[in-house]
Computed example of a mutant assay.
Amino acid sequence: MKKLDKIIIGVIAAVVIVAGGIYFLGGLGSNKSASSNKAASSDKPKVIKVAYATTNFPITYQNDKKQGDGYDVAIMREIDKQLPQYKFDYVGTSDDDVLIGVKSGKYQVGVKNIFYTADRAKTYLFPKNYFGVSDSGFVVRTKDKDKFGGLAKLAKNKGKLVPIAPQNGQYAVIADYNKKNDPKIDLGSADTFVVSDALKWVNEGRYDAFFAIRPMFEALVEKKNGANADLKDKLTYVTLGGIKTYPLFNKDQKEFAAAYDKAIKKIINSGKASELSEKYFGQDNFKLLDQPFK
């Protein structure tokens, strides 16, 4: 073989080796890149749609910036901080759609001052731990506060309570009182009605007490432009105690609910939940749990 031919063959062989090396390394790089992308994808937080009612100030509402706000939303934001594996996407909607959407799976969780009831637990997943406390009490005529402003007072004086729907957590409070006490409160049941009508019924004497929550009374009666502001001097709100409130999970969200349970324990123990209660309600509602309904 001629010397020139040997040189050409040597060059070709070198090129093949280099090209093969580049291909091999490139393949490794490609595999590493694919592996890296796959890992990054698996580390990506799972998006959780959090539905909240937009008209329940100061519990859940939209602020001036059209952002979700209120105690329930704020506490969910704190939970979000504790769970890096999830990313919360807040969706403002109607009261009814919160329930319908969570049931269907459109939303993974919903918030709107929700009380636990056995009836709701058949359809939705309740976590083990509550995340808030609702200031619950009677709206009575101011002149009859001493006569009807309490469970025992209403029962003793044979007062009439605005009927409560069985699926409402307040129904359970009255039912529990009746099991343990005599005389009992006449506990009728009713479907949904307009709250402002119930306030008018009490004022007119049709009923003697309406089981409500403080924020509702403040918004409708005590605010200057409230729907029932004309009844401010005629009606009074009396706190009876605190009812625990929960986020409502879709039935398939067991893993998420378990993660929530761990996070909310830390938040409540840190005092952050009480701090948010003070901010939105003007008082630490968690202290009401030490006050038995009577």
Rank of each mutant, 00 (worst) to 15 (best):
Y52D: 02
G68A: 01
S41M: 12
V91I: 09
T54Q: 12
D95A: 03
F24G: 10
K66M: 06
S35N: 11
M76L: 12
I79N: 06
N37K: 15
Q67V: 01
L83G: 09
G29N: 11
F57I: 13
K66T: 02
Q85I: 07
Q82E: 04
N37F: 12
D89R: 11
F57E: 12
A39F: 07
T54V: 13
L25N: 15
S35C: 00
D64Y: 02
A34V: 12
K38G: 09
K44V: 00
S36G: 11
I22R: 10
Q67L: 06
D5P: 01
A39P: 00
D89L: 09
K38M: 04
G68Q: 05
A40G: 08
P58L: 08
I79A: 09
Y86R: 01
F88A: 03
K49S: 13
Y86N: 05
D72T: 03
S33M: 06
N31W: 12
V50S: 04
S36K: 15
V98M: 02
G29I: 06
K6S: 15
G26S: 12
S41Q: 14
S42L: 12
V73Y: 00
V91K: 00
P45V: 03
K44H: 08
N31L: 05
K46T: 14
Y23D: 11
V18H: 07
F57K: 15
F57T: 14
Q85S: 14
G10R: 08
M76D: 00
A51C: 06
I8Q: 13
K38I: 01
D89C: 07
S41E: 14
D72C: 08
M76E: 07
P45K: 01
S35K: 13
L83D: 05
T54P: 07
G92D: 00
D96E: 04
A74M: 07
G68W: 03
I59W: 07
I8V: 14
K38N: 11
G29D: 01
Q85R: 11
G92S: 00
T60M: 00
A13F: 08
I75R: 00
K6D: 09
Y86Q: 02
I75D: 05
S35F: 13
D89T: 09
V91L: 01
V91W: 02
